[in-house]
Amino acid sequence: MDAKTLFNMHKLMLGNEVIMTYSGYMSQALLTSIASVLKQQIEQDHLPKKVMRNIFSVFVEQYENVVRYSDDQIEDEGKDDVRYGIMAISKKNESYILNCGNVIKSTKRVKLLRERLNSLKNMSEDDLKAYYKQKLRADTEEGSKGAGVGLIEIARKSSEFDFDFIDLNDGTSFFLLRSILK
């Protein structure tokens, strides 16, 4: 990639009011730094405390979702997870839009995730709360390193959310999750 292309990417992001973007390998250690910068950045906007907290919260859950579940991973035994993903936060009018994406290799997992997200989309606030509590108490699901409640948290804190799976035509898919916070 030449420097001009990089500049065009920069312009494209500015045009979309992207305030933060990251593409590459991600780790828990990196989250510490990115989260602290993001916190400073959203504090500048003097948003209501609740909105600020919700933005931060969705960001952390999205980030941790990539770090735990992306299938593009640097294998290094005994070391903490390092996985590939993208994140972008942009502003539009009064809304914040948080996007994350990562590769999923198993079609079975794509199917499960699609079903899970569809069911979260159809739940009322009360349903989400009950399901959240149920999941907080449940033993960690097999193959799930996290609390398994991150997606429910995202659904609860977002004003709206949607998702997509893009078929990469090699048996893998690119998973995208978008949260809008007002």
């Binding site: 859950e61 108490r137 996290g146 609390a147 948290e153």
Partner: peptide, 16 residues
């Protein structure tokens, strides 16, 4: 001031 969903799971365990 803030806790993530994995910490919420720990809190639930403590209260239970």
């Amino acid at each position: 001031l803030y806790f993530n969903s994995s910490s919420a799971k720990v809190l639930m365990r403590i209260f239970d």
